[in-house]
Design a binder for these strands. Structure first.
Lengths: 344, 344
DNA sequence: TACGATGATAAAACCGGTTTACTATTAAAG
DNA sequence: CTTTAATAGTAAACCGGTTTTATCATCGTA
């Protein structure tokens, strides 16, 4: 492959002139410019991306980083991904999807700086090494989802309005007359769990209704989602027969609820209303009855995150920002008015 | 950021020794190694990705390239994407998604070589510049989908077994007693159209049945898929009332067929069987009746493509390969036995 | 005519690694 | 006790760009 020296020689100019013709960092006279471009065309020359990045200390690539072993993209990620790409596309950035196995990235011969100008991080966890590492290295960073307290004020992030969502959902069910609502929350450590719960409680307080703390349960990380939904539904309905509605984290959990309900001969939604956060799955409409949930705007989340990051790259030292994306309910038929004493 | 010279100085060795400790290209004694690693840890040093790439002429990044303006990933792409990522993950490659707007990539200041070791190309087109360009530059390349004749024998590719699929579908319908089958094919220029048609015809020949060429129609690029399905169904059913089954390209086309059928008061599947290639959409199960189609193994397609490419990168001058992924029918209820004269 | 200012190009240093060619040391072989 | 071979490490060149500094011609102005 031809390099910048070859072009310089053919065009009869110095390499710095060729460089400036391509990078446009300094004006080069029309005639010389043309001579250089002609020579480049002749030799089929293009500036080398790596050499340029090395000298520029910029790559025009942003990274999308998902936690180690989890490589599966879901429907929600698809939207997110489309959002990020849309933004990259229009602003001239490439996207590097980074899901190297830890096995690889720990080996000495693979240790290296990341080949990106900045990163979008998914699913932040408590004491997330990925975050602390990037802060230490001063790498521009935007997190999708709320990071834990330790980083919350030092890192820009974009998140669903989980508090708001929790509240809206609870209010909706309260208005339908449900007063004993089982909340099958996700793992306690995750920030989503805490946020949704907070909204849930807020709705009860606003309505001046008492909350039974036993009706908020958390997923055990070891259980599969469906098993979790199934087991908890059976257990809690046995101990708390007053329950008329269940809020689940995902539709997979809801599937377990449906199974339990069938065994218990409870009709949905007549005897039991079921609600699921995240409308992201392709299965939601296939439930019988179709599952009511919220629409997570993955695409908006993605594009906002990308915008935020690119802004950081363009204008260094931008302040830390938080963006909350509101979500809307999607009514499908798995929620109904609470059964009253007479039709019980 | 600390660089290799800093580390060398602290550890009291030359930079080439540091380089060899990290790249492991030459053995360095245990003690010196340790001294270097300690110094690196102290300085929080990591080898610079771009400097390394420049010297090595390898990036360990593979590119996923979609045609210019089309940035939307669909359900099918999702599977494909998961397949590619799975392979990257286990083989230590990063994935660069490349969807820069042409507006950007044509500007002189953005012209550059691609920062990848090789590319996976989606949706090859006739006279595809992306292909010819990469062949010229000798960039390793794997195409997903069958490229046109000009490149077919010079480029490795992975594709669905469209010929086989066309044949299986036609055979299935023939066995159900349909003899007048309308084939709403996609644009004539696309290789998928040609392949599926070939399989379709093969099935008829094998069954020794005549084909009415008027019953194979092609999509006009300007129409939306649904309009295409709707208009063609109305037109062809009017001129050829013997038609008892319709094969469509996608479920969007099928939706148009369903609409037309409803207007014509034809019941599906009793009066009219409908089949759709590609099960990739989330809508297929939501049709009434649910749509019968084929399962495209996007994930397999993706992982096979990635494997092929990585093999090319590891072993230069590997021969050109073609991989066909078989697809399987998914029966859902939109196809039935052909109506016979008596129940017509 | 001489002066500083301006603009275009060139020469050389630099970005941060890898690699080649060479030297010094030690071990094994004859 | 040499000779040969293998091992460990280094200096310098190199990968292909960018950038700083220097050079030189041209121009307006005093």
């Amino acid at each position: 492959m031809a390099n910048i020296d070859d072009v310089a020689k053919i065009a009869g100019v110095s390499k710095s002139t060729v460089s400036n013709v391509f990078s446009k960092k300094r004006p080069i006279s029309k005639e010389v410019s043309q001579r250089v471009l002609d020579a480049a065309l002749d030799l089929n020359y293009r500036p080398n991306y790596w050499a340029r990045s090395l000298a520029n200390k910029r790559t025009n690539i942003i990274g999308l980083n998902m936690p180690g072993e989890q490589v599966k993209f879901s429907q929600f990620h698809l939207g997110l991904f489309n959002g990020v790409l849309k933004e990259c596309y229009s602003q001239g950035y490439r996207l590097l999807v980074n899901t190297l196995s830890t096995e690889f990235s720990k080996q000495v011969e693979y240790v290296a700086t990341d080949p990106v100008d900045g990163d979008i991080l998914l699913d932040p966890a408590e004491n997330d090494e990925r975050i602390s590492e990037r802060i230490m290295r001063k790498l521009p960073l935007v997190v999708i989802g709320r990071p834990h307290h330790e980083y919350e004020s030092s890192v820009s992030y974009v998140d669903n309005d989980n508090v708001g969502m929790g509240q809206i959902v609870a209010e909706h069910l309260l208005q339908l007359g449900h007063s004993h609502i089982l909340f099958l929350n996700t793992q306690k450590e995750r920030t989503v769990a805490q946020d949704r719960e907070q909204g849930f409680i807020k709705a009860f307080q606003k309505a001046d209704m008492p909350i039974d703390p036993k009706l908020i349960v958390y997923k055990d990380g070891k259980l599969t989602s469906t098993t979790y939904g199934y087991q908890m539904t059976k257990r809690l309905l046995a101990s708390h027969p007053q329950i008329t509605a269940i809020i689940t984290d995902t539709d997979k959990v809801a599937l377990g609820v449906y199974q339990a309900a069938e065994e218990l001969k409870l009709r949905i939604p007549d005897d039991l209303s079921v609600f699921a956060f995240s409308d992201d799955s392709i299965y939601a409409p296939e439930f019988k009855p179709p599952l009511t949930g919220v629409r997570l705007n993955g695409e908006v989340l993605g594009s906002e995150a990308a915008k935020l990051l690119i802004e950081q790259l363009r204008v260094p030292n931008t302040i830390v920002k938080r963006i909350l994306i509101p979500a809307s309910l999607v009514f499908r038929g798995s929620c109904a008015k609470a059964r009253t004493e007479n039709n019980k």
